[in-house]
């Protein structure tokens, strides 16, 4: 019984560490920001083409 529990604790610690340093939310946020910039730019670009 002792061995599996030890292993579980190790896995938990590893998971905790991954969580502590993960920047996946930052990656998603900067992508969303980039998409917003592209969307805004393309919208005005089509307005520009429309008015040429």
């Amino acid at each position: 019984m002792a061995k599996p529990e030890l292993q579980r604790t190790k896995t938990n610690t590893k998971k905790m560490k991954e969580h502590d340093t993960s920047l996946k939310g930052t990656l998603a946020s900067v992508f969303l920001l980039g998409f917003f910039i592209i969307f805004s730019w393309v919208s005005v670009y089509f307005l520009f083409l429309h008015r040429l």
Binding site: H19, D20, T21, S22, L23, G25, T26, S29, V30
Partner: peptide, 12 residues
Amino acid sequence: FAMFATFEAYGR
């Protein structure tokens, strides 16, 4: 990027 990362690192 740095701002998002600061907030995420703190939250985690």
